[in-house]
């Protein structure tokens, strides 16, 4: 499988705090890499660096073999990166449909109004918001907003999807629903996915590999089964040897 995203020796400080240090990651096309770690481990910083919201202190990020460091977030989006935010950020006063149409008109494909609407309707049906098309997005339930976030990121034509805790705050049923949505979207749009999650079940189920961050450093990157057995991971999470 070809390398799609490569993170090399990535580091970023905030004043005296080392948010990320010497993180390396290679993601193949079509892979799903889960990212786990305690709060403050550097997960969202990693996403912010890839998506262009932050500049790395050290290291490089390569998408499709070309560096995306220093590009603005909108240009990185146009290169094929879509992301969701930890707290949902819908275009609150716009309808659900308008949210997706806007994303489809920008992003990588930049569809015209007509094509954008068709794509939007399609995506909304996949994520289960088809019937709520004309609802004001600010009025959606949490589950609805989270699914809207995902649909919007995919609507940009993204090939790399960064999912930031899309299951947070959802009930077990909604989590299962979201898992299904993500898997369907992945299949229909040939996506490569990086997913930050605290909901372990979901993470283990969906990931091909899991990257474990601890205090800004990558302490393991392996298949879920190996991670569950990894002594370093167990140490950090359960304090077995501490």
């Amino acid at each position: 499988m070809s390398t799609f995203l490569e993170v090399r020796h990535l580091g970023r400080n905030f004043g005296g705090v080392r948010a990320l240090h010497d993180v390396n990651l290679t993601v193949s096309l079509g892979e799903v890499v889960g990212i786990m770690g305690a709060n403050g481990a550097g997960k969202t910083t990693l996403f912010a660096l890839i998506a262009g919201n932050l500049r790395p202190g050290t290291g490089d990020i390569l998408l499709d073999d070309s560096s995306i460091v220093g590009l603005s977030p909108d240009r990185i989006c146009r290169r094929g990166v879509g992301r969701t935010f930890q707290t949902a950020r819908p275009f609150g006063d716009l309808t659900v449909l308008e949210n997706i149409i806007t994303a489809a008109r920008f992003g990588m494909h930049r569809l015209d109004a007509h094509a954008a609407e068709k794509r939007a309707v399609l995506l909304l049906d996949i994520v289960g918001l088809g019937t709520r098309r004309n609802q004001i997005s600010g009025d959606l339930t949490l589950s609805g907003q989270k699914r809207l976030e995902v649909a919007r990121a995919v609507a940009t034509g993204a090939r790399l999807l960064l999912l930031d805790e899309v299951m947070a705050g959802l009930t077990p049923t909604e989590v299962a629903q979201m898992l299904e949505v993500v898997q369907t979207l992945k299949a229909e749009n040939s996506l490569t996915i990086l997913i930050i999650e605290h909901v372990m079940r979901a993470l283990m189920r969906i990931s091909d590999r899991i990257l474990v961050l601890h205090h800004g450093e990558a302490i393991a990157c392996n298949a879920p089964a190996e991670i569950a057995r990894d002594p370093r991971v167990l140490d950090c999470y359960l304090g077995l040897h501490a």
């Binding site: 909108d74 989006c77 992301r83 950020r89 275009f91 990121a153 940009t156």
Partner: peptide
């Protein structure tokens, strides 16, 4: 509506 989200979906803000 949300400048950061707009940037994330490719709007050249």
């Amino acid at each position: 509506e949300n400048e950061q989200a707009a940037e994330a979906i490719g709007v050249p803000v």
